[in-house]
Amino acid sequence: MMYYTCKYTPLEILAGFDVETQRLDPHPDTVDCANGCTHPNLCGFGKAIIETIHTQNIKEVILTDCCDVMRRIYDVLLTFEDLDFVYFLPLPHKGGKLEVDLYEQRIKDFIQAYQAYSHKTFDINKAIQAYLAQPEQPEREDPYTRLTGAHGGSLLLEKIKDTFPTVQVIDDTCSGNRYVEKEEVNAENFLHVYANHILNQRKPCMRMLHTKDRNKDEHPVGTIYHTMKFCDYYGFEYMNMKEDVNMPLLKIETDATPQSSGQLKTRLDAFAETLGVKNNKPAK
C-alpha cells in the first residue's frame, strides 16, 4: 500500500505496478513523536503526517512539494528505519509546455525508482486503464455548500455533512476533488498527456500560478473556508473571497488534531442557522 498526501500524486502510474494507494488523512490525538523530531514551528498538518506514519507503521510513502513543509517531512522520514520506501516528487508551479515536459520526466524517474525498489515491471496499459476509469466529478446539486481551502480531512468533512444534512457538501480543498482530465491515449503519448492533465486540474492547488479561476462559476448556499495554523498559502485567497459580499463565508482554522471539535461544531451550527439551513437530521 502506497500512502500519499497530494492530489498531484500520479496515482494512475502506481496502478501500472498493481499497487493500491491510500490518501493520508491524519488526525492524531497527540503529536508526541513529531514534536520530538521536528522543529516546533512546523505546521500541525506536517506534524500530524509524521505522527500518523510513525504510529500506523506505514511502509511506503510518496510526497510532493505542495509546500515547503513536505520537504521537511521528507527529511524526517528519511531517518525512519521502519519505512521501506519514501519518495519525494518535485512539482512544477505552472502547467505550460516546459513544465509538462519536466513533470513527464520526473514521472519517468519515479517509475525507474519504484521498479528498482520493488523489482516489479511497470505496465503502461494498466496505468492507462486506471486513468480512463477515473470516476467523474460529482455534479453540483442546488443547494450545495463547499468546503474549500487547505486540506480538511474526513473528520471535518463529516462534521459539515452532519451540520448540513439537507444539502450537498462538496470537498473543494487542496486534497479533495481530484480529477485528471481524460482523453484517448496510447502507450506512446500517455505519459505526456497525463503529465499535462495532472498539472492542469480544474481546481488547482494554491501553490500553482494559474489559480484565478478556482472559484469561477461557484454559487453555493455557503462556503466554509479552511486554513491550517501557520499556513499562509490559503490565507491570501480567503482575503480575496471575503471581499465578495454576496458569498456567505465562514473561515475555520485547525491544526489537524481533533482537540477543538466542540468549538468547531458550535461555529458550524451558527453558520447553518445564519444561512437558514436547518439541521433536520433525525435524533439518535
Rank of each mutant, 00 (worst) to 15 (best):
A127Q: 05
D82E: 15
R106K: 07
L89Y: 02
T79Y: 09
I62M: 02
Q115P: 10
T64P: 06
D101M: 06
Y117N: 14
F110D: 03
F85I: 00
Q112R: 15
H119V: 11
Y103C: 01
A127C: 02
L63G: 04
D82C: 12
Y131V: 11
D84Q: 11
I128F: 00
A113D: 11
S118A: 10
E99L: 05
L98Y: 07
Y131A: 11
H93K: 12
H93A: 15
L78M: 09
R106V: 00
D123M: 04
D109W: 09
F80R: 04
D123A: 08
I62Q: 05
H93F: 11
E104D: 13
L78Y: 03
D123F: 01
R72Q: 13
Q112F: 06
A113G: 14
P90T: 02
D65I: 04
M70Y: 03
L83C: 07
Q112W: 09
L98E: 15
P92I: 04
K108Y: 03
D82T: 00
T121S: 15
D123T: 02
E104F: 00
I73Y: 04
L102P: 08
K120G: 09
E81K: 12
E81I: 01
F110Q: 06
F110R: 08
F80Q: 14
Y74G: 10
Y74H: 06
Y87H: 05
F110A: 07
I124R: 08
Y114S: 06
H93T: 10
K94G: 15
E99W: 00
A113E: 15
I124P: 08
D68R: 00
P92N: 05
I124K: 06
A116N: 14
F110L: 11
Q112L: 09
E104Y: 04
T79V: 05
L77A: 00
I128L: 03
D109I: 06
V100G: 14
E81D: 14
I107A: 10
A116C: 09
